[in-house]
Design a protein around this nucleic acid. Structure first.
Length: 691
DNA sequence: ATACCCACTTAGTAACGAAGGC
DNA sequence: GCCTTCGTTACTAAGTGGGTAT
């Protein structure tokens, strides 16, 4: 697959090809460059596991080459300067070749000591591919080569054992396989509150009946007469049994999952092995949706190979459909990033299999997103002045646009696309706000011109906020609400498309959501500056970081349900703190007596004892502080989710720079997954990075 | 102008599993 | 060694926004 991925190599004569595992490589190419690009693969098992009998792998000459290809070479670097720098016609491969040739010339005679190259962790570190140091593709082209194994389908339905019964109207009833499968979906949810909801039950029953045989259909006419409890108990027992499994059995399952991941969890995109985010097809089940969803309880049907569109390179090994099946379509569209797609039956929307956030294709986009936000920083003052002017416009449309933009900017509201009624839960964003969602208070709690927002946003998360606004905004809102019903649109002359078209005129690439990114990132940067106390120790600094992060999460209204065990775990922590306090008091007492003792005795031994007691006190003090910090952090975090903003809104370079500046290990801020996603930022941001 | 389709990002929660306490 | 706790990962719903057809 590597060779096929390399444009411009078709003319290589057979005699110059080398076979590696199942692939052919041009001999020169391999020796000169293969090592340097293959080492970019996360795990090159074929190379390691199946050394070819050509003996190249063991060749001391090749072995002594540095695995990492140098990045500093000018010829390479020159091609990678700046954002959006694309060099049509050139390609990554040739850069790799050039690069490694240049390196070879320089280091031809240098032998790397045997011990060095076997250092495992270092090697793995070096294997990471730095895509951010390479040129970008021209706009629109997402890849040149793509090969993958296709999706993993949900396991087929396994009928219940004979002794697990379903009862209708008090009588045992044997269900057909299809009807039984859908019944099990319901049975598994029995403990959830929503199985009691009218809409859920109605939708479920309607869809379930579609799966029944005519006989079942005529018998089962009332959901309330259905008794799933036995089935439910059976599943609970199964869960319990799974928990009780022996180590070996659990290991077996783990191994199988790993095998699946290894085989289907990766693809090859342009010379690099990349992790796939979701290679498993969503299994059938009952749709829940969030909030008050009109379609809750509907049957999410099983996806078959015949539903699946495969996207890959023409010249790649096309994944075969499961035996006896066909794909819906195989296409070769390199203007999109997805590998597999299908249409889902609840909303009729398309679902995709795409790459992991650590992949080049996602990372580049992410990076670009923050660069756009940074461009906004440069012109945000101008834009703000502009919309303030527009509040006075004689055109209604312009005024509405300006007020909406003010909300988006000031409150970090989402754009608010219209949605089809009856298809989704009733939620709104800025442009789709209705009169009923705001209240105007000329005066409230000693403040003038307060707007009270109360509406359900994305995921039916409530947005509640009382905001003092400028008089002009207030007067405009009064105007917009005149002669309207509560259910009428607040901004009746505005939608996201109009707004975004306007934004596009103000700055290239500007859309409503850029404001969220910009305001989130700038808030983090400013809060970090404000909150970080240079004299604090590391845990205290991290608390400051979390507080800065929290300010952003609050701005973006990222909420979470308080963890079920919150109160309990808080109490546990408090008792730990109390215990630590006592311990500290004890240690202090001991120190005091040791001091007194030393004063009397004046010998080395007692002096030493004082020292060690002092240290002990210090240690305990530190531990106590750590616990207290933890408690504060947790309390303040009760209903706020930090992860969303961290993952999607905060330019990672701000955090990386902050870590570097204060000597905080990056691991304290980003876990492993996050470090993988933000590898580009961790690598490139210096202490002095300014958003 | 509007509806609709498509691709891609953003979102919260459930399930899982490692670490730490008893 | 078992149990609890808590962070991580998997999952998939629900947004945004661009493009195109009507």
């Amino acid at each position: 697959w590597c060779l096929r991925a390399l444009p411009g190599l078709e003319d290589v004569a057979d005699g110059n090809l080398l076979k590696l595992s199942c692939c052919w490589f041009p001999r020169d190419f391999f020796f000169e460059a293969a090592a340097s690009f293959l080492c970019c693969f996360c795990s090159p098992p074929r190379i390691k596991d199946e050394p070819d009998d050509d003996g190249f792998y063991a060749s001391p000459k090749e072995d002594s080459k540095p695995l990492k290809r140098p990045r500093e070479d000018d010829d390479v670097k020159a091609c990678f300067q700046g954002e959006g720098n694309t060099v049509p016609g050139s390609n990554r491969f040739f850069l790799i070749l050039q690069d490694s040739k240049a390196k070879k010339a320089k280091s031809k005679d240098k032998k790397v000591p045997e011990a060095d190259k076997r250092k495992k962790p270092k090697k793995e570190e070096e294997q990471k591919w730095k895509w951010w140091e390479e040129e970008r593709y021209p706009e629109g082209i997402k890849w040149k080569f793509l090969e993958h194994k296709g999706p993993v389908f949900a396991p087929p339905y396994e009928p219940l054992p004979e002794n697990v019964k379903f009862y209708y109207d008090g009588k045992v009833m044997k269900l057909s396989t299809k009807a039984e499968e859908v019944a099990t979906f319901f049975a598994k949810m029995l403990d959830h509150e929503y199985t009691t909801k009218e809409i859920f039950r109605k939708n479920f029953f309607k869809d379930w009946r579609k799966e029944m045989t005519p006989e079942e259909k005529s018998t089962i006419t009332n959901l309330s007469k259905c008794d799933f409890t036995h089935m439910s108990q059976y599943f609970k027992a199964q869960t319990e049994a799974r928990k009780q499994m022996s180590k070996e059995e659990k290991q077996k399952i783990k191994d199988e999952n790993e095998r699946l991941l290894k085989e289907y969890g990766y693809c090859v995109m342009d010379n690099h092995k990349e992790r796939i985010a979701n290679f498993k097809i969503e299994p059938p089940g009952l749709f829940r949706g969030r909030g008050n969803h009109p379609k809750m309880g509907m049957l999410k049907r099983r996806i078959m190979p015949e539903d699946i569109i495969i996207n890959c390179s023409k010249d790649s090994k096309i994944p075969p459909p499961p035996p006896g099946h066909k794909w819906k379509e195989v296409r070769h569209d390199n203007k999109v990033t997805w590998l597999v797609s299908w249409t889902e039956n609840i909303q009729g929307s398309i679902k995709y299999i795409m790459l992991n956030p650590s992949s080049r294709i996602k990372g580049e986009k992410d990076w670009q997103k923050y660069e756009t936000a940074r461009r906004l920083k440069k012109c945000v003052d101008k834009i703000r002045n502009q919309y303030r002017e527009d509040w006075k416009s004689k055109e209604m449309k312009v005024r509405q646009r300006a007020v909406a933009l003010y909300f988006i900017d000031k409150l970090a509201l989402r754009a608010g696309n219209e949605k089809e009624e009856g298809e989704t839960a009733d939620t709104v964003g800025c442009c789709s706000l209705r009169v009923e969602h705001i209240k105007l208070h000329p005066e409230l709690d000693g403040q003038e011109y307060v707007v009270e927002f109360d509406f359900l946003g994305k995921d039916s998360i409530r947005y509640y906020n009382k905001v003092p606004v400028e008089k002009r905004v207030f007067k405009n809102l009064q105007l917009f609400m005149e002669n309207k019903q509560p259910e009428d649109d607040l901004f009746d002359r505005l939608n996201t498309s109009i707004l975004n078209k306007h934004l596009q005129d103000l700055m290239e690439g500007l859309t409503a959501k850029v404001f969220r990114t910009y305001n989130a990132s700038i808030t983090l940067q400013q809060q970090l500056k404000e909150l970080t106390n240079p004299d604090d120790n590391i845990p205290a600094k991290i608390l400051s970081y979390n507080r800065a992060n929290r300010a952003v999460a609050i701005l973006c209204n990222h909420q979470r349900a308080p963890p079920k065990t919150f109160e309990k775990s808080m109490m546990n922590l408090q008792s730990k703190i109390d215990a630590k306090k006592e311990q500290l008091a004890d240690a202090r007492r001991e120190l005091k007596s040791a001091k007194a003792d030393a004063k009397v005795r004046r010998d080395e031994k007692s002096k030493k004892s004082v020292e060690s007691k002092k240290k002990a006190v210090q240690r305990i003090e530190e531990q106590l502080m750590k616990l207290e910090v933890q408690a504060t952090d947790r309390e303040e975090n009760k209903q706020i989710a930090l992860s969303t903003s961290k993952l999607n809104y905060l330019d990672p370079r701000i955090s990386v720079a902050w870590c570097k500046k204060w000597g905080i290990p990056i691991e304290k801020i980003y876990n492993k997954t996050q470090r993988e996603k933000f590898a580009w930022a961790i690598d490139m941001a210096e202490e002095d990075f300014e958003f």
